[in-house]
Design a protein around this nucleic acid. Structure first.
Length: 497
RNA sequence: GGUCCUGUGGCCGAGUGGCUAGGCAGAGCUCUGCAAAAGCUCCUACAGCGGUUCGAAUCCGCUCGGGACCUCCA
């Protein structure tokens, strides 16, 4: 049994994964800001870490998976005015802030269910942890690393950097940060350009506001994750995940805050997924190239040639290593769609198959190759979650399964033991670890009964060489989006578009 | 401007210095009443130029592309 190795952004190398407490894993993943609809880019981390979660569980760990909901507006600087994203949007849509947040939270949960992701163990909200955040800020001030100006509190990065390595995670050099030529507005209050807000005083028109020792305001951008991760996972925990774009300043600042409060580095393994790009460019609001998940599922977007099933997206994401960029295109997605169909149909055939021993039919080549390919599933996954390589191995096995189904290879070409290994592994890996499920809407007993009837009639017609009737059945079903296939040996199978 | 990543066949994408990943598309064949599916075979690429090495897509250097972060961002 090989050991799980993960690429740690902090050390920039693959390390053997060892949880702090053997058999238990604490994992925190940065969740969505529910001020708007999630898009394709957001799907990547949640699917990636869903598989990480599933795999760690499969390895026998008890995993506490915490993923926050950011429902308190994060600080956004637009021109001179500091505007709270959620508050602004709420005014536009004429909704109560919490109403808006609820709407998008529900939508997010719906999308995650479409992707068949497992719900986190704890899904804390920022608004539900204002007290914890205030407490943490107090601690930072007491420790001498925070200062108050006009009702806002900032983190003193320069002071922190004197005794700690600020920039360790993101590879940033503090002096470079200070020298940045970029002109930023609304920074007059800060002692230093590199400082970041822990608490912001709320302007009168700001709707989301809470009482604090420094006046009415709202929490800064990074503090919620520090506070909630500490609360639910402790001063130090195993894994912190999120998109690469959060490395700086978000995660870097999180480390600084938590280190001051908890006197220890908060995270053992930082895991970051890469971006989904479109025409080589990161998908993001600022680039105006966003495809929302609802649009993706419905096909209702000018870029989209058709609707894409959530499982196609999931498969598409898992066919690439999580640390590589993944470029969106209709062509690529349609390739995934077809690939997944082939793989899944083979999987279903395999599960429905029965082993029949037959003397002298064993194929030594297959008998040695299949277990090897299956054993590599674990090896590849242990190598920093190489889902793409596991998929590749599965595709190598697909022709064998199809041939067995068509009886061009006897099932007994492999031993019963190997057959059961294969059957079990496909189920475990595709369904439990990769979290894929059937795309078909055919899981309906009544429809299955109707189809069986049509198949029986068609078989009779074919038996009488009445091809007019048999073609009529097949053609009209095709028009309804149901594909009927004649198989070797006279059987027929069907699938819904 | 600073820091970092990256450039693989028609497309998408794995790739640990030596043993042609895989998917999609394309071509041929087999099976088949036809169709679809499936099976078999073919298509063997690593931006360019140098260097290290017995041997480089993989290491080093330079050049040229592309991107991310430095500002909300998955």
């Amino acid at each position: 049994m090989s050991q799980l190795k993960v690429y740690n952004s902090l050390t920039r190398q693959k390390e053997i994964f060892k949880p702090i407490t053997s058999g238990h894993v604490g994992m925190y993943v940065c969740g969505p800001t529910v001020s708007g609809e999630s898009h394709l880019g957001h799907a990547r981390p949640y699917i990636t870490f869903d598989v990480v979660y599933r795999y760690l569980t499969y390895l026998g760990n008890k995993v506490r998976y915490v993923r926050n909901i950011t429902d308190a507006g994060h600080f956004e600087e637009e021109g001179r005015e500091a505007v709270d994203k959620i508050a602004t949007k709420a005014v536009l849509e004429k909704l109560e802030p919490m109403e808006l947040v609820q709407k998008y939270t529900n939508l997010f949960h719906w999308a995650m269910a479409q992707f068949n992701t497992i719900s986190p163990s704890i899904e804390p909200t920022a608004t539900g942890h204002i007290v914890e955040q205030v407490e943490m800020i107090k601690q930072i001030i007491e420790a001498g690393f925070g200062y108050e100006v006009n009702g806002s509190v900032y983190f003193d990065v320069k002071k922190y950097a004197a005794s700690h390595d600020y920039g360790k995670l993101s590879g940033r050099v503090i002096d470079d940060l200070l020298e940045t030529t970029r002109e930023l507005e609304g920074q007059e209050e800060k002692r230093d350009r590199a400082d970041f807000a822990l608490w912001k005083a709320a302007a009168p028109e700001h709707i989301m506001r809470w009482q604090s020792p420094w006046g009415v305001g709202y929490p800064g951008w990074h503090i919620e994750c520090s506070a909630m991760a500490t609360k639910y996972l402790g001063a130090q925990f195993d894994i912190h995940g999120g998109g690469m774009d959060l490395l700086f300043p978000h995660h870097e600042s999180e480390i600084a805050q938590s280190t001051i409060c908890n006197h220890t580095a908060p995270v053992r393994y930082w895991i970051h997924n890469n971006m989904i790009t479109i025409n080589g460019r990161k998908m993001g609001k600022s680039y105006n190239n966003v495809i929302k998940l609802t649009e993706l599922f419905s096909g209702n977007h000018p870029i989209l040639e058709k609707a894409y099933h959530p499982m196609t997206i999931r498969f598409f994401i898992l066919q690439t290593h999580y640390r590589s960029t993944l470029d969106f295109s209709n062509e690529a997605l349609q390739a995934s769609e077809k690939g997944l169909k082939r793989l899944w149909e083979a999987h279903e055939k395999l599960q429905a198959m029965h082993y029949e021993p037959q003397e002298g039919t064993t194929d030594p080549e297959l008998e040695s190759r299949i277990p090897k390919l299956v054993a590599e599933f674990n090896e590849f996954m242990d190598d920093d979650f190489s889902t793409a390589k596991v998929m590749a191995n599965m595709f190598e096995i697909v022709p064998v399964i199809n041939s067995m189904k068509d009886k061009t290879i006897p099932v007994s070409a492999i031993s019963k033991q190997t057959f059961e290994l294969l059957q079990g592994s496909f189920k475990t890996w595709l369904e439990d670890i990769f979290g894929l499920k059937s795309v078909s809407e055919a899981d309906n007993a009544r429809l299955q009964g109707v189809m069986q009837l049509l198949i029986d009639i068609r078989k009779e017609a074919k038996g009488k060489k009445d091809f007019v009737t048999s073609d009529k059945i097949r053609n009209q079903l095709a028009q309804l989006g149901i594909t009927l296939k004649d198989e070797k040996g006279g059987d027929m199978s069907w699938s819904v578009e």
